[in-house]
Amino acid sequence: MKKNNILILSAGRRVELIQDFKTEAAQLSDDIKIFTTDLNPRLSSACHIADAAFSVPPISDDGYIDYIFELAVAQNVGMIIPTIDTELQKLANARVRFEEAGIHIVISDPVLVTICRDKRLTAKLFDRYGIEAPEIYDRKNLSFPCFAKPYDGSRSIGTKYIHSAEDLSYELLKDPKIIFCRYINIKDEFTEFTVDLYYDRSSRLKCAVPRERLEVRSGEVSKGATRRNNLYQLMIEKLSVLEGARGCITAQFFCKGDTIYGIEINPRFGGGFPLTYASGGNYLGWLIQEYFYNRDIAFFDQWENNLIMLRYDAKVLVHEDHR
C-alpha cells in the first residue's frame, strides 16, 4: 500500500499548522490523511483537528523512535514533520532508517541539527556564512551589560539580562550550560525578526520570508508582519545553500538599518509560520510535491509584503463521549 499519509509529531496547540496541511493535501490528492501525535492527544487541540491522533511515549523514552517507526508503518505514513526542539536530534539520527522504509522525515542532517541546538556552534555557523553574531564572552572576562542564556535553550527560557557584576550570582557563573554574550537592546535600538526559510532536498534555498516580531507571548510571536527588507536580501546572498538543511528552517535575527546579527537557527517549523503560509509561502504544498510526487520546487519570491498577523486565543470543545 502506498505510504501517502503525513504524521505531525508533538502537535500540541498547532491547530493552524494541521489545518493548513489538510488544505494543501486536499488540493493535491483526496487520499492524504494528516495524523498527529502527543503525550495526551485528548488534551491537545491540534490532535482534535487531525484526521487521527495517537498517544506516544515521552521523547526521552529509549523506545520513542521505535514507537514512531512502528506507528508510521502501521498507518501508511510517508512523511513525518517534527515540531519541537527536543525531538530533532533523535529524528535526524534515525532519518536514514526511515528513508529505507519509504518514510521521509523532513529533518536536516544530524550535524546541522547538532549545530543548531548549541548556540555556541550556531554563532560559528553564522560566521562561516558571512553573517555577524553577537560576541560570546569568556565568563572570566565579561563586559556589561550582557545577556545570559542556556546554550541549548529555546523560547527564551532561562535567559537573563545582566546589567552589571552585581547582577551575577554564583549559580549563574558556575552553570556550565549558561553562556554570556553581547547584549542587544531590542526595545529601543534593534528590531527582532524571524525568517522562515524553505530548503529543498539538495539544501538549496527556495523561499525566504522575514517576519517582524511585533509582539511575543511566552516565546512565540502573537503579532507579526512580513517584511521585504535588507534582511531578505542577506538571506538570498548568504544562505542560498545551507549545507545539510532540509524543509523549513527558522532563523532569528536582530536588525538595525544595515546592521544584522544572527541569533539562532531552529531546523523546524516555528510557531509564527502561519503568517508565512498566509503570505504565499506554500511550504506545506511544496513538501508534499517534493516528497510524494518527486517534483522540483522553483524559487519563489512573490509572497505578500507587509502582511500583518494578529493572533488570538480560540477553543476546541471535547465532549464526554468523544474518543
Rank of each mutant, 00 (worst) to 15 (best):
K2F: 14
K2M: 12
I6Q: 06
I6P: 00
I8Y: 04
S10I: 07
R14K: 14
F21S: 03
E24V: 06
Q27F: 15
S29N: 15
I32D: 08
I32T: 12
D38F: 11
D38R: 09
A52E: 10
D62F: 01
E70D: 13
Q75M: 13
V77S: 07
P82K: 07
E87Y: 11
K90C: 12
L91G: 10
N93S: 11
N93I: 12
V96I: 10
R97H: 09
F98A: 03
E100F: 15
A101W: 14
A101F: 14
D109F: 15
D109N: 15
V111R: 11
L112H: 05
T114K: 13
K119Y: 09
T122Y: 00
K124S: 08
K124C: 06
F126Y: 06
R128P: 08
I131V: 09
Y137H: 00
S143N: 08
F144Q: 00
R155W: 06
I162F: 11
Y170K: 00
E171D: 05
P176F: 08
R182H: 09
Y183N: 03
F190N: 03
E192Y: 14
F193R: 01
V195M: 03
R201N: 09
A208E: 00
R211S: 01
E220R: 03
K223E: 09
N229K: 05
N230F: 02
L231I: 06
Y232K: 06
L234C: 08
I236N: 06
E243H: 07
C248G: 04
C255V: 13
K256R: 14
G257P: 10
T259M: 14
I260K: 08
Y261T: 04
G262W: 04
R268E: 08
T276C: 10
G280C: 02
G285H: 09
G285Q: 05
Y291I: 05
D296H: 09
A298V: 08
F300C: 13
Q302A: 12
N305V: 02
I308G: 02
Y312A: 00
E320Y: 15
R323L: 14
